[in-house]
C-alpha cells in the first residue's frame, strides 16, 4: 500500500507549487500513472482522500490518467503497444526493447485560482 506514500508526495509537491506560484485553492490535480508502475488508481485515490483530509487539499479532485506501456525495438526500430507486459518485438521478435511510456508517475497540471493574473 505505497499509494499512501505516493499520495503524500503528490500533496507535498502541489502545496509547494501552489505556495511558490501564489495560487488560490487548488480545485483539481491531474496526474499521469504509467501502467507499469504498480500504482493502483483506486488505491491512489483512496490514499489521496485519506492523506489530504484536514489539509488545504481536502476535497480537491484527483484526476488519474493511465498511460499504456509502449515499447520500441532496439533492433528494428518498431514501436508497439506492449500487451500483457510482454516485451518482444512483433516484427523481428527481438527481446531488446526500450520502454518509451508506461513508467510515468507525474503531476501533469493543477487547476487553481491564479492570483498573479
Amino acid at each position: 500500500m505505497h499509494e499512501l506514500a505516493i499520495a503524500e508526495s503528490i500533496i507535498k509537491t502541489v502545496l509547494d507549487e501552489a505556495e511558490r506560484r501564489n495560487l488560490g485553492p487548488v480545485k483539481k490535480i491531474a496526474v499521469r500513472v504509467g501502467a507499469l508502475t504498480d500504482v493502483v488508481p483506486d488505491a491512489l485515490r483512496f490514499g489521496f482522500e485519506a492523506a489530504s483530509a484536514d489539509t488545504e487539499l481536502e476535497g480537491t479532485k484527483l484526476e488519474i490518467k493511465t498511460i499504456p506501456v509502449v515499447g520500441k525495438c532496439r533492433n528494428c526500430g518498431k514501436g508497439f503497444n506492449v500487451e500483457e507486459h510482454i516485451f518482444i518485438c512483433p516484427v523481428c521478435e527481438s527481446f531488446d526493447i526500450e520502454m518509451t511510456t508506461g513508467g510515468e508517475l507525474d503531476i501533469e497540471y493543477i487547476e487553481a485560482d491564479d492570483r498573479s493574473i
Binding site: 503531476i107 501533469e108 497540471y109 493543477i110 493574473i117
Partner: peptide
C-alpha cells in the same frame, strides 16, 4: 476563475 497550471513534475522528484 480557476486556471489550468502546468506542473509537469515527477511525483517522486524529491526521492529521485
Amino acid at each position: 476563475m480557476a486556471a489550468k497550471i502546468k506542473i509537469e513534475k515527477k511525483i517522486l522528484s524529491e526521492n529521485d
